[in-house]
């Protein structure tokens, strides 16, 4: 069966440029791809969890792709790209929610680790810069500080919990 899709892609988050990609699956490993009007015939096979072998016009590429939500971490020859791929529906949702209300702030783990110390309780009043907890990974301590004056809303973690990058830690109201 042929599958045709239209995607909207941005590279490295903050860059404005949006690429329009039309892709159709023409064989088991062959794809016809159109990026902003430029056409490519691509042969791509997946080698393992992250590695793809891509051949375009006889040029061979080993590409390392890691999926992170709607984003892909792409590594080619040591170069690193972060690419967001959205379809039309997701693009609409994104544009609608981009004006997020300020007020309650949710703190997230910026690296994986475990909660070594918890210094505050829910409902506690805090000042900007006050340490809330200490996240430790590989002998490196990372103090999580309050981004503003306020009150600790919810704490999502317990002592010794392990967290991944992006896990919610606490809210500051």
């Amino acid at each position: 069966m042929t599958l045709k899709r239209e995607y909207f892609a941005t590279v490295n988050k903050n860059e404005e440029k949006e690429y329009i990609i039309n892709i159709s699956v023409s064989g088991l490993n062959t794809f016809e791809i159109d990026i902003d009007g430029k056409k490519f015939l691509v042969d791509s096979v997946r080698i393992n969890e992250n590695i793809y072998s891509i051949i375009i016009n006889g040029r061979s590429y080993a590409v390392d792709i890691t999926e992170k939500g709607d984003c892909y971490d792409v590594m080619i020859d040591g170069d690193h790209f972060n690419i967001e791929i959205l379809d039309e529906v997701k693009r609409l949702i994104k544009h609608r929610t981009s004006s997020v209300a300020v007020g309650t702030q949710t703190l997230e783990a910026n690296m994986p680790g475990y909660i070594w110390k918890l210094m505050v309780d829910e409902g506690q009043e805090i000042k900007e810069g006050d340490p809330l907890m200490i996240l430790v990974a590989m002998k490196m301590e990372n103090e999580i500080k309050s981004p503003k004056d306020g009150v600790v809303g919810k704490i999502f973690v317990k002592l010794n919990d392990t967290v991944s990058t992006g896990d919610k830690l606490a809210t500051i109201v």
Binding site: I54, V63, Y72, I76
Partner: peptide, 18 residues
């Protein structure tokens, strides 16, 4: 980057997505 061209990364990401 050694190569700033985003064509191959875009192709790879689109294929992965599809």
């Amino acid at each position: 980057k050694k190569n700033e061209d985003v064509t191959i990364p875009l192709i790879a990401a689109a294929i992965r997505q599809v």
